[in-house]
Design a protein around this nucleic acid. Structure first.
Lengths: 152, 152
DNA sequence: TAAATCTGGATATTTGATGTCCAGGATTCG
DNA sequence: CGAATCCTGGACATCAAATATCCAGATTTA
């Protein structure tokens, strides 16, 4: 019974994006990202591919290949990542059709829910990977370098 | 693949609460509410019971019994209904434990998500059944009376 | 007492997220 | 060139939660 539900995949994707931001221009194989977080590699692959289709991440095949962040961290919002992995479908679509006339007026409940959903998206769109990076450095300045070392 | 997911039950519960507001002090049986919306009666019952446990709705058994809204419409927020039906659990709990020290610092991703969730809840907590009623009357002044007539 | 209605638990069904596997293609290195 | 590494994409299996059904009681009205 969860109100705002996000797939686990979003959490993984966000962590991986931050990891890739720290890894810089060194490709990181999906298997290493998965191992770093203790995740099933075959499933994490799905999220990475979704990020790739969204243009957030880029991949290079072959030895020494792997994934790279394909855009500067300050241009990738959390909403971008969420939309890439979980889709950008409307959150709440009320099925009631107003019976009053020929116009299909939007149900009042639907409107209220859409407004709440918009507030949620706006909040996520206002924060980027660069913001997360800054937050982490504030709490633990060594964490990014340590992660980079473990991944590359 | 839905980002903000709410159970269908929430939609039903909201519609029923509005219906009960319009029905005033005349009890409406669950079966009639279900028929009005074309919903499975046995399942709608569950949502109504949840609303009852939350003190939003009251029930009276026996013939001429049914459900009543138990609080003035302007005191029932959409968040109240959502919490009653879907629970008020934390929306996003990031599993990463910071490795830096003895403190279990909250992960930056978790914090960002919590902020977005809060914005969503705040929006829902800012609107009441009375607001919805006003919206509906603005679009179709006769709808409340018509619904009341069909239900009582 | 008989009919109407709610209560709450047990249980089945369905849907979507989660997880696995594999055949194929691209790239690097020896 | 050949082998190893790595990604791609689809098909499929599993599992948890929402959805849906049913029923044996309890309560109230008439």
């Amino acid at each position: 019974m969860v109100v705002v539900k996000m797939t686990e995949g979003v959490e993984w994707a966000l962590h991986c994006c931050l990891d890739l931001a720290w890894a810089g221009d060194t490709p990181v194989p999906a298997a290493r990202l998965a191992a770093h977080h203790g995740l099933p590699p075959a499933y994490l692959t799905k999220q990475l591919q979704a990020l790739g289709r969204a243009g957030i991440v880029r991949s290079t095949p072959g030895p020494r290949g792997g994934y790279l962040l394909d855009r500067p961290p300050h241009t990738v919002t959390l909403m971008d990542v969420v939309a890439a992995v979980d889709g950008a479908d409307p959150a709440f679509r009320c099925t009631e059709i107003r019976a009053g006339g020929p116009h299909t007026t939007r149900c009042a409940i639907d409107t209220a829910m859409a407004r709440a959903d918009l507030a949620w998206r706006r909040e996520l769109a206002a924060r980027t990977l660069a913001d997360l990076d800054a937050d982490v450095r504030r709490a633990d300045p060594d964490a990014p370098a340590a992660t980079r070392a473990r991944l590359t």
